[in-house]
Design a binder for these strands. Sequence first.
DNA 1: TACAAGTCAATAGG
DNA 2: CCTATTGACTTGTA
Length: 318
Amino acid sequence: MAQEMKKEPETDPEIIREEEVEPQGVKPSAENDNSKNNDQFTLLDESISNVAHHRPSNNRNDEITVEPELYAEEPRYFTHREGPKARRPVFREELDENTILNAVIADEAYIDTADLAQRVLYELKQYSIPQTLFADKILCRSQGTLSDLLRNPRPWNEMKSGKETYRRMFNWLQQPLHIRLSILNLYDITGVSPSALQPLLPPEQKRKILPSSQGLSNTPCSSYTPSPSKKQRFLFTERQKSTLNTIFNTYPRVSKDLQDKIAQKLGLDSNTVANFFMNARRRQKIQQQARGRAEYETEYLTEEYEDEPVDVTEISNA
DNA sequence: TACAAGTCAATAGG
DNA sequence: CCTATTGACTTGTA
């Protein structure tokens, strides 16, 4: 649980630029013990193939196809020993585009969201990037949503509009370190207009967008005014919750009639009960899918079999 | 109208 | 200050 590895977020931007703080081989689940030499440069396309590849089958069990050891290497675009003065980043043109994070990945591309989530979690921790910031600047989503998507990654091929959010995480991860940080405004790239760093726009319509004409220039996602009145969140009593859960475990989907009866019995609004079952069904499904993936991994992706080349001598000797 | 998927965003926990 | 949880919107379908 202890997160011994952690970098100082307060690092002087200058230092970051000159010395390029790099995340060493990232392998969250395996504690970075992968001693494989991750020094080689990595082409974007290769990195992309880490979590995304083409032509996936729609079969749920085919989702796991990522080689577990390929976490990470940062492409080195420039190094600190290159001269007395670090060179200027040369990504202006890329930053000019509103397409960095909105870049569309080929339709047939497949993203291993579980793997992607692990990487994002690692990056956020590594650079002490709060979820709130990342969720807002990169995804245009709320912190809670991000947390949920990261902890309970949805299966790629079962998603529809939800892919967009994961795509953004994915695209962000593809950027070199300084750009990843600059988009979050954690690292200032001189010579680049701030507007160029704010290419993000809400991927879809946001809820409660008030017709206000106020032009919030900074945060691209807060184009709506937060409702002045905070409505309290309803909370089930222990009894209500346990009763509902008990029923749900036996009857995941009850008829409208029964729902109404339950509502009356528990002194709840009919809609509240309906919402409970709807949420319970969806969340249970997500967890089952995650569990299924985990089983699949432990069952088929045992350490021994990774990409180890087959021992030919053994075969020929037989 | 009912359900599912994607989120929001309040708030419980640390 | 942060992240995790979660009841209820919002939107897209059928």
